[in-house]
Design a binder for these strands. Structure first.
Lengths: 202, 202
DNA sequence: ACTGATTATGGCATGTCCTGCCATCATTGA
DNA sequence: TCAATGATGGCAGGACATGCCATAATCAGT
């Protein structure tokens, strides 16, 4: 198994290449818009061939998924690190805080800028967030709430929390402010429940 | 203004063409998968040129958005039809019920089948649902809850409800059952709120 | 029914995305 | 040094999407 070292090196190299391509691409996207940048430009600026670009990214759009994947992984780790006996929603709040504040705000803002300038990216990234984060949160909630396997409740809660995060993120991007505070505010709304809101009727 | 008639006719024709192309495309997609069907096939089977196809749909993917648009419009109408003094969440539940049960279940199932067989479609449709339905619901909630303009609460609630719908829809597709019941169950979880869930701590 | 205007359609050319294939080069391990 | 494994580059080709213009259909006014 001496080759485990070679494997490590390869993985490292692959990661570096991905990061480099991502950086180059994001810079170009931010400057001139996603659609106006060709894969050839990205590859050329990163000193690789177009063919090689496609060996590290399945598509041009995939460049924008890397950031998403990083955050998901960070969330997974942050959730796993919370003590078992903590209130689940509190764990989520703390984990989210950690993930959000760990990110370089400038990078994040540029990332969002690029995406929000391109409608079809907004759509696919939004969907991607849902697809990746919600199973994560649902699994966590299912474990900590000790629900029976395949229960509907953690899934629903995860989806609701996911909605809150998205709403907070959107509002933060549009109006600025403190993203952590926005998330907390949103979660509080959720905690209160909706049942009490209506002005009349039951 | 005699041309308003002509305009109507044109709109009608456009709608028919869209519907026809959608039907043809969905049939092909369902049979062989989204990626394996070319636009040329769709156009040819519908007796139009490829160029004409792109006059009715901005992209091949857009074929799958019309169903979504229909449901959104139906939801908007159904929401607007609810009496002003009804509890907002009750209104939403009833409106959702109406929209869901108004749809042809077979068509809907085929639509979902096509989408769920193609990962990148799942992503973009999921995002599209969020982008289109949530502002709708948020506007409704803001109006009925009489919150101040630009308030965060209706947005958060709409996002949460959106999450519930998505969770119910997914579960319905995976495991079958009664979709209306699933939505109700999910909304009940939301109504109860999350604050009470944790087993210990505060 | 004829004519001019508006609109829909078709075909062509083009640019981009993405993939399969194979040749070439570099790195590793013996 | 040499063989094997993996990374890279280049090329061909199919599909998507759009701009452009010529043609056909449709409609309004006479």
């Amino acid at each position: 198994m001496t080759d485990s070292l070679a494997v490590q090196l390869r993985a490292r190299h692959s990661l570096l290449m991905t990061t480099e391509l991502e950086a180059v691409a994001l810079e170009l996207f931010a400057a001139r818009g996603f659609d106006a940048v060709t894969v050839e430009e990205i590859a050329s600026k990163a000193r690789v061939s177009v063919r090689t670009f496609y060996r590290y990214f399945t598509a041009k759009e995939a460049v924008l998924q890397v950031q998403l994947d990083r955050r998901c992984e960070a969330l997974r780790v942050a959730l796993a690190a919370r003590p078992d006996d903590e209130a689940p929603l509190r764990s989520m709040r703390i984990a989210l805080e950690a993930v959000v504040s760990a990110d370089d705000p400038d990078l994040l803002r540029r990332w969002i800028t690029v995406i929000s300038a391109t409608p079809h990216l907004v759509q696919s990234v939004l969907g991607g967030i849902q697809l990746k984060t919600q199973p994560l949160m649902a699994a966590f909630l299912a474990e900590r709430l000790k629900t029976e396997p395949d229960s509907f409740e953690p899934i629903v809660l995860a989806a609701a929390v996911g909605g809150v995060i998205q709403a907070a993120q959107t509002r933060w991007f549009l109006q600025g402010g403190d993203i952590v505070a926005l998330i907390n505010e949103g979660l509080e709304v959720l905690e209160r429940g909706i049942g009490t809101a209506p002005p009349s009727s039951a």
